Measured scan of single mutants.
Amino acid sequence: MLDDRARMEAAKKEKVEQILAEFQLQEEDLKKVMRRMQKEMDRGLRLETHEEASVKMLPTYVRSTPEGSEVGDFLSLDLGGTNFRVMLVKVGEGEEGQWSVKTKHQMYSIPEDAMTGTAEMLFDYISECISDFLDKHQMKHKKLPLGFTFSFPVRHEDIDKGILLNWTKGFKASGAEGNNVVGLLRDAIKRRGDFEMDVVAMVNDTVATMISCYYEDHQCEVGMIVGTGCNACYMEEMQNVELVEGDEGRMCVNTEWGAFGDSGELDEFLLEYDRLVDESSANPGQQLYEKLIGGKYMGELVRLVLLRLVDENLLFHGEASEQLRTRGAFETRFVSQVESDTGDRKQIYNILSTLGLRPSTTDCDIVRRACESVSTRAAHMCSAGLAGVINRMRESRSEDVMRITVGVDGSVYKLHPSFKERFHASVRRLTPSCEITFIESEEGSGRGAALVSAVACKKACMLGQ
């Protein structure tokens, strides 16, 4: 009897593995994704193909990295998701002549009506938060230079001027797309009239992360975010950046690689679950690469896999709870928690219980395998993109072996128990001629924006502006 049951459990697990095998990517698959990513990057950089390229390769006008001589107080704003952060950054000489960066910050959550109302409502709310922060720190009387981390696709015309191309991540505030974001912020500050600010720089969160990590390690020339969304930036040779005049030196390019796949480059790798996630998203047909990796989508992918296993009578005796059938019910943090389970399955059992399920031991094991399959594919897909960037940098610099540091931020990278190990191992397999160091950014977005502002202020002083 026991043997029969054991055989049935083994057969069930084997069927589960057959279904989950769809998520496995072979090294040849990853090399294919990497080569296609490089081709799209090239198209994004070139003037004649930029418009139709899915990977936009947006110039950021960040050319210099901090040298350690900029000092002063800077205000930093960070808008990239449902939370908005205001930070005071003091850049100065530390002990023994070292450079020191001290920060104080406060988080504000953005109400739904500000995210989806008008641009005026959104930026009025942001300036209200700045006003509140300055009151708390008794700094209303000071006109501070301000660095703005704005983590949406922007076409820069200068370091302090950028046109919002399109909202992502659930934002829909009308009247912002096609307009200068810094102008919208300046107008809102003017409307309030109770404080003055000098907006000197606007950067993407990947750029802010790279600059913040450069402060720790001067070989950091790539910034990457794996959180709600997924994106990367890197220092490109100016001669390859056709959208900006000049051939000397390097400029940081914001790849906006989340949109890779929007022209069909990933079609052969998309599964039924991916198509369902895409169809029910706020932007169907867009940001397809990001939807395979980002935390906004990972939990939902797992939920759809679990429903398939229920329908195949391989999980929960073929019956799903009402909660499990509800879109968004299986949160991405559950994926991390399930994979963090120590082996007694308590954590998995508790999560499934909150979803109205009474799982068996085998159910718990199957749910864990589903989570591992989805998150491992995410790590491997992400590795193909980064390997594409790094191999490109090595080739354009004609280096036999390139040493490089990548600064990384984002909740999936930082909080998932195995993502970074799987990701690092896969990147290294795909970049055999590179020695890569990964560092995690601390308060990256805010500190990085302030350091970019410090560079901009120093330049302005040198130019006598």
Rank of each mutant, 00 (worst) to 15 (best):
E268Q: 11
Q323W: 06
T116L: 08
E339Y: 07
L47Y: 12
D267N: 10
R428D: 13
A201H: 02
V253W: 02
L144K: 03
S281N: 13
S64Q: 11
K140I: 05
A425H: 14
A456H: 15
A259R: 11
R422I: 12
N180M: 00
M238L: 05
T405W: 14
T118Y: 02
K90Y: 05
K459Y: 14
E319F: 15
T361V: 10
L386F: 06
C252W: 02
T168C: 02
P417W: 08
H105W: 10
S174V: 07
T326P: 08
N313E: 08
E319D: 15
R43Y: 13
D341T: 14
A114T: 12
Q38L: 11
S411L: 03
H141E: 07
S109T: 13
Q138I: 09
S336A: 06
P111N: 10
T342R: 11
Y297C: 02
K13H: 07
V241Y: 04
R250P: 14
F195N: 04
D344K: 15
K414A: 12
S445D: 00
L355P: 07
V101T: 09
H416F: 11
L451S: 01
Q98W: 07
P153R: 01
H317T: 15
G193T: 11
R46N: 12
D198K: 15
L243R: 03
V401K: 15
D363Q: 15
R36I: 09
K39P: 06
V200K: 00
S127C: 08
F84H: 04
H50G: 06
T405A: 15
A201P: 08
T437G: 08
S76R: 04
D311W: 07
E339N: 06
S383Q: 06
K143L: 01
L146D: 00
Q38H: 08
G246R: 04
I348L: 12
D3Y: 11
S353L: 09
E319M: 10
V310G: 10
Y214R: 15
K346S: 15
R303E: 07
M402T: 12
C434A: 09
R275G: 08
M87T: 09
T332M: 13
A201L: 03
V389G: 04
I189F: 02
G81E: 00
G117R: 06
V89W: 02
F438K: 10
Y61N: 03
R422H: 13
E22F: 08
C371Q: 04
K169A: 07
R308Q: 07
S109G: 04
I130W: 05
L271W: 02
K102R: 08
W257P: 02
L357Q: 12
T206D: 00
T354V: 15
D344I: 06
H156G: 01
P111V: 04
Q287A: 00
L463V: 10
S109V: 07
Q323N: 08
C457S: 13
L276V: 11
D400W: 15
K190R: 10
E95H: 10
E40W: 02
R429G: 11
T376S: 11
E112N: 11
R369T: 12
S69D: 12
G249N: 14
S418A: 13
D262L: 12
